[in-house]
Amino acid sequence: MADIKYYDVILKPVVTEKSMGAMAEKKYTFLVHPEANKTMIKNAVEKMFPGTVVAKVNTMNCSGKKKRRGMVYGKTAKTKKAIVTLTAESEDIELFAEA
């Protein structure tokens, strides 16, 4: 496994209607590095967002979708998602900064 630093673990937040609804319950969804494990994700969130305390991490591997371009078939890249649950006394993560 490659040497993955904490700032390489979290790639970007997942912005969907379902994930935005879960933010009220202190659950945040991120796209993460495919080789990252739950401990690495927990450490990365706590270092990147000061004041947060992670209660648990759920991960899911999403396989690539089949796509067709003309007569050529292919697949999109596979991804890994993580749903991070924070403790009740933890600070919220601000994904969108006010400009």
Rank of each mutant, 00 (worst) to 15 (best):
A24H: 12
D3M: 05
K80I: 01
F30Q: 01
E46M: 12
P13K: 04
K56A: 08
A88H: 08
G51T: 03
I83K: 08
M60K: 07
T76N: 08
E35P: 02
M71R: 13
N37I: 07
K5E: 04
D92I: 05
K12F: 05
E25L: 12
N37C: 11
V72T: 12
Y28K: 13
K78E: 14
Y28I: 06
Y73I: 09
H33K: 11
I83L: 09
Y73N: 13
T39A: 11
K12N: 12
N43F: 09
T39Y: 10
E91Y: 09
I93F: 14
K78H: 12
T16Y: 08
K78V: 03
K81Q: 08
S63F: 10
T85I: 09
M1R: 07
A2T: 11
A24D: 15
G64C: 10
T52P: 01
V15E: 03
V32N: 01
E91C: 01
K65F: 12
K38A: 15
V72G: 00
G70W: 10
H33W: 09
V15H: 10
K26S: 13
L95Y: 08
K38S: 15
G51D: 06
A55C: 00
C62D: 10
Y28F: 15
K47W: 01
Y28M: 07
M23K: 15
I4N: 03
T87F: 05
A97D: 15
K47G: 00
E17L: 05
K47P: 02
E25R: 14
V9Y: 01
E89F: 01
V72I: 14
R68G: 06
M1S: 12
M23F: 02
I83Y: 05
A77N: 12
K18R: 15
T52L: 00
L11P: 03
V53C: 04
C62H: 09
N43H: 13
P50I: 00
K42A: 14
V54S: 03
K80C: 03
A22F: 03
G64Q: 08
M48V: 00
I83M: 14
K65I: 08
N43P: 00
T16R: 14
D3N: 13
A44Y: 04
T85H: 09
V57N: 03
F49D: 06
A2Y: 11
L95T: 02
K56Y: 12
P50N: 00
T79D: 03
V15F: 11
A77H: 09
V72H: 06
C62L: 14
K27I: 15
A22Q: 14
A24R: 13
T16V: 07
F30P: 01
E35T: 10
A44H: 04
A55H: 07
K78Y: 09
I93Y: 13
E35Q: 15
M71I: 08
F30S: 00
V9P: 01
D3H: 10
T76I: 12
G64A: 06
V54A: 02
F96K: 14
I93T: 08
Y6P: 08
R68I: 13
M40K: 06
P50T: 00
K18D: 01
S19P: 03
K56L: 05
V32H: 00
S19R: 09
M60V: 15
K75C: 06
G51M: 00
T87C: 07
K66T: 13
Y73W: 11
